[in-house]
Amino acid sequence: MQIFVKTLTGKTITLEVEPSDTIENVKAKIQDKEGIPPDQQRSIFAGKQLEDGRTLSDYNIQKESTLHLVLR
């Protein structure tokens, strides 16, 4: 499925993911596309910070959902 990741600069990245993917996985995909190390990424969805060990389905993130990426 496709999800979108919006950065603070307003750029939107499209990722191909599975509901079973962990947040860690997703951060690795963002690193592949953007070169941002996962330890600098904070992902926010529906106002909640997403934890690395959880999966997209844990957070009820579905296709075409938009995550927000904040850098630390």
Rank of each mutant, 00 (worst) to 15 (best):
V70T: 08
K11I: 09
R72W: 13
I30K: 05
K6L: 10
V26T: 02
S57R: 12
T7F: 15
G10S: 02
Q41F: 15
I30W: 02
D52T: 05
I23F: 04
Q49Y: 15
D52F: 03
I30G: 02
V26A: 00
D39Q: 10
I23Q: 00
Q40E: 11
P19M: 09
Q2H: 12
R42E: 13
K6H: 14
T14C: 07
I36N: 05
F45H: 06
K6C: 15
K33H: 11
E16T: 13
T12N: 03
P19Y: 07
Y59T: 00
G35L: 05
P37T: 08
S65A: 11
P38H: 12
L67W: 01
K63Y: 06
F4S: 03
S65N: 08
T14Y: 06
E16N: 11
K11P: 04
G53L: 08
L50N: 01
L8Q: 12
Q41H: 10
R42C: 15
D58G: 03
L67F: 02
R72D: 09
Q49S: 10
L50V: 04
N60D: 09
N60T: 04
Q31K: 10
Q62N: 08
I30Y: 03
F45S: 04
S57I: 07
T22N: 02
D52K: 02
L15P: 00
D58P: 00
D32W: 09
Q2E: 08
E16H: 10
E18N: 13
L8V: 11
Q41N: 08
A28F: 12
A46P: 03
F4P: 00
L15M: 04
G35H: 07
I30M: 04
V5H: 00
L50Y: 03
T9L: 09
L67S: 01
F45P: 02
T66I: 13
K63S: 14
G10D: 03
A46R: 14
S43A: 15
I36R: 04
K48V: 14
P37V: 07
T22S: 07
Y59D: 00
K11G: 06
S65K: 03
Y59P: 02
Q2R: 14
A46D: 13
L56W: 00
M1F: 15
R42G: 13
D21Q: 04
F4D: 00
S43C: 15
K48M: 13
R54A: 08
V26S: 00
T55D: 01
I44R: 04
S43T: 15
G35A: 05
S20H: 11
E18D: 13
E24I: 09
D52A: 07
K6N: 04
N60P: 01
I13S: 00
I61Y: 00
Q2I: 15
P37W: 13
K27Q: 04
K27C: 09
L50P: 01
A46V: 06
I23W: 11
E51M: 10
E24Y: 14
I44N: 05
K6G: 03
D52M: 05
K27S: 05
L56V: 06
D58R: 00
T22A: 02
S57K: 12
G47S: 05
T22Y: 05
R72G: 09
K48E: 12
G53H: 14
N60S: 07
T9G: 13
P37L: 08
V70C: 08
V26K: 00
Q2Y: 13
I44G: 04
P38I: 15
V26Y: 05
Y59E: 02
L56R: 00
Q2W: 13
K27R: 09
L71Q: 10
I30E: 01
K48N: 10
F45K: 02
N25H: 11
V26G: 02
I3C: 03
L67T: 00
G53E: 09
Q31I: 08
L71S: 09
G47T: 05
L69M: 12
R72Q: 10
T7R: 05
E64R: 08
K48P: 04
D52H: 05
T66D: 02
Q31T: 10
V26M: 06
I3F: 02
P19W: 06
V17R: 01
H68N: 06
Q31H: 14
V5M: 04
D21S: 06
I3G: 01
T66R: 04
D39H: 12
I3P: 01
K29R: 10
R72M: 13
E64Q: 11
L67M: 06
N25A: 13
T14M: 12
K33Y: 11
G47E: 07
L15F: 04
V17W: 02
R42I: 15
Q62V: 12
V70A: 08
D39N: 11
T14D: 03
F45E: 02
V26R: 03
T55R: 09
A46I: 07
T55W: 02
T14F: 07
V17N: 00
A46C: 12
G47V: 03
L71F: 09
L56D: 01
N25V: 14
L71V: 11
D39V: 08
T12V: 14
I13N: 00
L8I: 12
Q49A: 12
Q40V: 11
I36P: 07
E16M: 13
L50F: 04
Q62P: 07
S57C: 03
S43M: 15
D52P: 08
P19E: 07
Q40Y: 09
K33T: 10
D58M: 04
V17G: 01
Q62M: 10
Q31L: 12
D58Y: 15
R42P: 11
T22L: 08
T7V: 10
Q40F: 10
L56A: 01
P38C: 09
T66V: 13
R42A: 14
E34L: 15
F4L: 04
Q41I: 15
V70I: 12
Q41K: 07
H68G: 04
D32T: 11
Q31P: 04
T22D: 03
K48G: 07
L15N: 00
M1W: 08
L67I: 14
D32V: 12
V5C: 04
Q40A: 10
D32M: 13
I44Y: 15
L71W: 11
L56G: 01
K33C: 07
L69V: 08
I44E: 08
S65I: 04
F45I: 06
T7I: 14
N25I: 14
T22F: 05
T9A: 11
T66Y: 08
E18A: 12
